[in-house]
Amino acid sequence: MQTWWIIGAVLAMMLGNLIVRAGMVGVQMAHTNRLSTLQVLRYGIRRWQVWLGMLLLFVGIVAWISSVVWWRLELSYTLLGLSYVATIVFAWWFVGETLTLEKMFGAIIIVVGILLIIRGSGF
């Protein structure tokens, strides 16, 4: 149950972010002129992808925080770190973002760094 909770939380955060990003890219593509931050938000909240993504993101964040506090710190942080790497690939695949070696290595180094921080601080 705990493992599935953590996997579900991380997947929800990753999927939520990807869906929100897809929705917001759609906002930018629909308008040729440069939009202000408020305009971007106003057009963004009219899209169902943004609402679905935000819901998933919120549920994922809350579930992930509870998993860190209640259960398995290392598994939670490892899976979160791996989701960074997976997001780089999925964002390239589904949203058309750039995929570079620097990004991949950067994310992998961050995962190792986070694990060292968690082991060292016991937080």
């Binding site: 963004g44 943004v50 960074y84 973002e97 961050i110």
Partner: peptide
């Protein structure tokens, strides 16, 4: 949300 309209998720999520 506003950030993801302008910048790449694969950069800011990590």
């Amino acid at each position: 949300l506003a950030l993801l309209a302008r910048r790449q998720l694969s950069f800011f999520y990590p």
